[in-house]
Design a protein around this nucleic acid. Sequence first.
DNA 1: ACGCTCTCTGCAATCGTTTACATCAAAAAT
DNA 2: ATTTTTGATGTAAACGATTGCAGAGAGCGT
Lengths: 360, 360
Amino acid sequence: MPVVTITDVASRVGVSVATISRFLSGGNVREEKKIRSVIQELNYRPNIAARNLKSGRSATVAIIVPDISNPFFAALVRGAEKASGDSLMAAIVNTDSNSEREINALANLYGRVDGAIFVPTKESDHKNGLSHFGRPIVFVDRYLQKEKKYDTVLADNARGAELAVEHFASEGHTKIAIISGPLDSTPGRQREEGFRKALDNSKIGANPNYVIVSDFTQAGGYAAMNQLLDLAEPPTAVFSSNNLMTYGALNALKDRGVRVPSDISFIGFDDFELSTLISPKITVINRDAEAQGAEAMRALMWRLENMDSKISKHSVIPVNLIKRESVTIPRTWDLQNSHKVKERQSQTSDHSNNKEKVNE
Amino acid sequence: MPVVTITDVASRVGVSVATISRFLSGGNVREEKKIRSVIQELNYRPNIAARNLKSGRSATVAIIVPDISNPFFAALVRGAEKASGDSLMAAIVNTDSNSEREINALANLYGRVDGAIFVPTKESDHKNGLSHFGRPIVFVDRYLQKEKKYDTVLADNARGAELAVEHFASEGHTKIAIISGPLDSTPGRQREEGFRKALDNSKIGANPNYVIVSDFTQAGGYAAMNQLLDLAEPPTAVFSSNNLMTYGALNALKDRGVRVPSDISFIGFDDFELSTLISPKITVINRDAEAQGAEAMRALMWRLENMDSKISKHSVIPVNLIKRESVTIPRTWDLQNSHKVKERQSQTSDHSNNKEKVNE
DNA sequence: ACGCTCTCTGCAATCGTTTACATCAAAAAT
DNA sequence: ATTTTTGATGTAAACGATTGCAGAGAGCGT
């Protein structure tokens, strides 16, 4: 297996290597036709490593995600990879939601890739790792609070939570709970904030007992839902902040024989395969994960072409509510009960005193 | 942002670049301590491209899969990536089950990667693409029939199908159907063969009407199940050859109001998240997809270290039956009916004549 | 004291490209 | 007919590492 180089092609055609190189990069050359045929004949392929060395680029980008087997990240990666086209190679790294592995990955990737699409686990500081990496990074779905200069592609998380709350409220719910993700992750925080804000806007107000901060895992969702059901006065509607926790929460509901939606209404963030197979079909907040990945890749590619641009780009992926069967009006008993709550609620807001809310 | 090279380190320490290089590759050097501190101080990182050029390797492998958003492939990739450790970078490519994109990917990857883990869509010939690629390839889950020299990591597909049939048979089913994947794909073919073999072994014999060859997609599974239900004498038990078709088949069942398992028993190949959330919990043939990916990566790494070895390695990932709630005994009406079938069946086998089976 | 081995060192070639620069012939402008 | 412009070409120097080779001390046996 003789490895054929540009020199072989050049001597075979009878020109210098420079000419071949120029042909390869689209320049005008006299012997174009002959070069083409010789390349074909010898099956010449440019040596990528040599090209990378000379050009200082690798035509490769990294996609760093917490867990590729989470359907959302899988779709994200798929969209990104598809958008990269043939010109760019995508290397993927799984961090298992481990901050240490994240900085490790960044260090390892240095010099191997031209840039990265990064889904960090936490919003906490990554500063050293990032500056050492020294290449463009597009943050997806999560970002680092202190670093404004990086491009981001986020979902409209707050809006998603609002849509859920508004839908619950329009059906008459007032005892609305959230199973939230970690507040030091972007989607966790933003969805929780959106939830509170929507509750405030609709004059219902957030009940601290109805805010369970969990961890975006299935086990966490299971525990959180049980915690809600154990309350003296359980909520009549529950919003779960991501797909994995939705699985867990639904399992808890099932295990305890609580029926959806007759006993409790439910909305999850992020649609999932099989959401139509289970009974009832689950109402969800949805967004186009593939589109989000594609947008991130486009942003990164743009940045690679415009390294010196000072402006940072921040895209927001829209969300929408998919109404299915897991939301209905509260049970009568709860309705009466919620009536009382409502009254109490309006009293407190009359006094513009939300201390009572916290103690409630 | 001054890019620091080995030369900078060398001059700072006061030795030649060769010494630094030797230190980097673990050789004994006098100034080890000082070199270490200077590297730290200047934050020197070896230039990967230069190293690749010299060594002729890229420390990168490709993972080529039909669809990363299929949970099975996601798990496969995850296992492979994890097994690669820090020494190897994994580039993933989605082919969308498109043969053309497969050969394209191989061509594109030439020179960029040291080897590949490849899940081809079809068993048909890829010969030219493969030989031009000129680097080790480990075939996973699927392989190319005519190429025996490549390493493979397959699941025990035939055994999986057998387990399903045996379980159905042990519950008294005789009208057993398969929704098969394409017969020109390895898992499709092997599972269908295992199905037939198990049926023959148990003296039931395969009914051609009960073998629907579909395409491993959800839509395909949906259509196939409908086709089975439209039969004058529908099967009492159905085995679906992959997870996507399982989704589709279950949807069809649901849409037509056919209850599982009271009306029809069901087993799917490959477990899936949420298999416990839907009612009934689905009985499946399972295998460890992550382990399969990890094994593939190990095989590839071994091959990269032993390029000249003539022996090709073929690993088989075990499968097991996870009994849940989707299989029970056939309905009484069907039992009576199947009794007749059984009698007919035993007659034909008495005659040791399986021609009739084909015509049945 | 001499030669021998052993260990570490620097020199310089090398990997396969790209590209600034100089060159040169042909075409265009005078 | 001469000068200027144009455009393709070849020469050679990079890019940043690795490595064969030869040399230089140090340690050791005789």
